[in-house]
């Protein structure tokens, strides 16, 4: 369908992007926070994030905080634009369907 982003269209990736874009611009979400929030398994979330990273929609940084490894994720400008365009396309579809 016109305007819909194939990468973001998948329901879990759509929710991941929605959650990341709900953060303030200076905030970064930790991997386990996203797992709990979206009720996804580690493997499932990891696979979806990989897909979003390949599309350059998110940045992923792994670092040690104290002795524990932590993974932080945040959306790129390209990801923000793609998500907003996707949501706009969804709104157009709804508006069109309501007129029919």
């Amino acid at each position: 369908m016109e305007g819909l982003d194939k990468v973001i269209h998948q329901p879990n990736r759509l929710r991941i992007m929605a959650a990341l874009l709900a953060l303030d611009p200076d905030e970064r979400a930790e991997f386990t926070f996203l797992c709990d929030l979206l009720e996804l398994t580690d493997g499932n979330l990891g696979a979806h994030l990989q897909r979003l990273q390949d599309a350059r929609y998110v940045m992923i940084e792994k670092k040690f905080v104290g002795r524990k490894p932590r993974t932080y994720i945040w959306p790129t400008a390209r990801g923000r634009a793609a998500f907003e365009a996707h949501v706009e396309a969804l709104r157009r579809i709804i508006a069109g369907a309501s007129e029919d």
Binding site: P11, L14, R15, A18, A19, L21, A22, L23, L37, L38, V87, L90, R91, I94
Partner: peptide
Amino acid sequence: LAAVEQARQRT
């Protein structure tokens, strides 16, 4: 769209 809004608010 409802899923987007729900994810935003929950976050």
